[in-house]
C-alpha cells in the first residue's frame, strides 16, 4: 500500500540557516498527525515545502506515490493536497458566501468554463452545505473582514477543502482563539474533515488539543524531527519534554501548556 505522503531526506536552508534537516516521515490514510515545536523550529517551512510554496534544497516528497517536488501550490492543490493558514487567507472585502462560491468556482471550472458565470444554483447549494458543515451558515452574508477570528479560521478551512482533498495541512488552526473556544472549534473541523475521509496534519502549540485529537506526533526542533511517535508516547519522550513542551507539562492534566 502506498502512503498518502512520504517524505525522504528533506533539506532546506536559507542562506546559512538550516530550516529543515533530514526529514523522513510517512503518513497513512486516515491518520491524524500533530506537528509540534517551538516557533522557528521549521514547522511552517515544512508545510510550505510540501505544498509547493517553497522549493526544498534537497530530498523527495511523494504524495499518493507521485513526486510533488518542483510543483506550484496550485498543482499540488489540484492533486488533492490542500492547506489552511495560520493567518486566514480569505477575500476580506467579500461576504462569506462570495468567498465560498469563489473557492468552488476556481476549483470546479477549467478552460473555457472559466468564462461562464460563477453563480449557479447547484453551486450555491454546495456553498450552503459546506457552510453548514463548518457551522458558519449564520455568517453567510457577513463581510469576511468583520468576522470573529474563530469564524474566519473556519472559513479559511472550509475554502481549503472545497476540492475534498485527500490530505489537508492545517497551520495552527487554533492560534488566536480563546482557550474556551479551542475545543469546540477543533470538534467542528475534525468532524467535517472525517466526513470527507480527509487525512489531517495540523500544527498546534496547545498540548491538550494535541492529546485529544491527534494519533501521532512529530516534534520539530531546529529543523529536525526529534520524535515521531504515537501521541501518548511522544508526550513522555525525554527530548520532546526538554525541547518542545517543557518538563512541567503533565499530560491529561488541566494545567496550561508551557508553550502557549
Amino acid at each position: 500500500m502506498t502512503h498518502v505522503l512520504e517524505v525522504r531526506d528533506l533539506q532546506k536552508s536559507f542562506g546559512g540557516v538550516i530550516a529543515a534537516h533530514n526529514i523522513n516521515v510517512t503518513v497513512d490514510t486516515g491518520e491524524t498527525i500533530g506537528i509540534i515545536g517551538a516557533n522557528g523550529a521549521g514547522k511552517t517551512t515544512f508545510v510550505n515545502m510540501v505544498t509547493g510554496y517553497l522549493p526544498p534544497s534537497g530530498g523527495t516528497i511523494e504524495f499518493l506515490g507521485g513526486s510533488v517536488v518542483g510543483m506550484h501550490p496550485r498543482e499540488v492543490t489540484r492533486l488533492g493536497l490542500c492547506r489552511s493558514f495560520q493567518v486566514p487567507q480569505v477575500f476580506l472585502s467579500d461576504s462569506v458566501f462570495d468567498n465560498m462560491i469563489m473557492a468552488y468556482g476556481i476549483a470546479e471550472r477549467t478552460g473555457l468554463g472559466l468564462f461562464t458565470p460563477i453563480h449557479t444554483d447547484e453551486r450555491a447549494a454546495r456553498v450552503d452545505a459546506q457552510l453548514k458543515r463548518y457551522q458558519i451558515e449564520d455568517y453567510r452574508d457577513a463581510a469576511a473582514s468583520a468576522l470573529p477570528q474563530g469564524i474566519r479560521k473556519l472559513l479559511d478551512i472550509a475554502m481549503a477543502t472545497v476540492r475534498n482533498p485527500k490530505l489537508i495541512m492545517l497551520d495552527e488552526p487554533t492560534s488566536g482563539i480563546s482557550v474556551e473556544e479551542k475545543f469546540g472549534l477543533m470538534d467542528i473541523i475534525m468532524q467535517a474533515l472525517r466526513e470527507e475521509d480527509t487525512t489531517v496534519m495540523f500544527i498546534e502549540h496547545d498540548m491538550e488539543i494535541v492529546e485529544r485529537f491527534v494519533d501521532r506526533v512529530w516534534a520539530f526542533y531546529q529543523g529536525e524531527i526529534i520524535c515521531d511517535a504515537p501521541t501518548a508516547e511522544a508526550m513522555m519522550d525525554e527530548k520532546v519534554r526538554e525541547f518542545v513542551i517543557g518538563q512541567e507539562y503533565h499530560p491529561a492534566h488541566l494545567e496550561g501548556s508551557a508553550n502557549a
Binding site: P73, R74, T77, F91, I106, R109, F115, T116, P117
Partner: peptide, 25 residues
C-alpha cells in the same frame, strides 16, 4: 467581469496566495 475568471481576478487583488491554493495561477 461576471465570469468565474473575471471574478477570480478580483480575488487575485484581494489575495493571490489563496487563489494559488485554490488551484489556479
Amino acid at each position: 467581469l461576471k465570469s468565474t475568471l473575471g471574478l477570480m481576478t478580483m480575488a487575485v487583488r484581494e489575495n493571490e496566495i489563496r487563489v494559488e491554493y485554490l488551484g489556479y495561477s
